[in-house]
């Protein structure tokens, strides 16, 4: 599914809508170029889960942030991780498969650890400076769930 966003405010809004579909144990992978709007997307997702908005920051410095909302939201930045083993070391497996929601930036190295049911989000720069395209792909049980979503 391709969704066009006119800017950060719209991206947040779209993510907020997606948050309404979230269930315990969900995994979202998030890919975008640097400055592409990953933090904006997660801020919207968190707001949609009822997390106070100014609590959400990019996990660049602290690579793993946890926010308390309707569901607990983990936000992990795997940009500099080099292997699935390193993700194991920092406890990814323990965080997956529970009741929490995981958003994983730069999920490449995590591939072997990820569940079959997941939502893949890819953000790309659009034509205008603020524009972005959001490419959403539902895997496993996310496929029918995403089909019901009307952005």
């Amino acid at each position: 599914m391709l969704v066009l966003s006119s800017g950060p405010a719209r991206t947040e809004e779209l993510a907020g809508q997606l948050a309404q579909l979230l269930q315990p144990g969900d995994v979202i992978t998030l890919e975008a170029p640097l400055g592409g709007g990953k933090t904006t997307f997660v801020r919207g997702l968190a707001a949609g889960l009822g997390v106070p908005e100014d609590e959400v920051s990019s996990p660049t410095f602290v690579i793993w942030q946890i926010y308390e909302g309707r569901l607990r939201l983990h936000h992990l930045d795997a940009y500099r991780l080099r292997s699935a083993e390193e993700l194991e070391e920092i406890g990814l497996s323990e965080a997956l498969g529970g009741q929490d929601v995981m958003v994983l930036e730069w999920p490449g190295v995590a591939e072997p650890l990820l569940p079959a049911d997941r939502l893949q989000v890819r953000i790309e720069y659009g034509t205008g400076e603020e524009e972005r395209t959001l490419e959403l792909e539902g895997r496993g049980n996310w496929r029918p769930r995403l089909e019901q979503w009307k952005p």
Binding site: T60, V62, I63, R80, I90
Partner: peptide
């Protein structure tokens, strides 16, 4: 440093 940022659990 090896993880490229602070890992809370660690």
């Amino acid at each position: 440093a090896r993880y490229g940022g602070v890992v809370p659990e660690i």
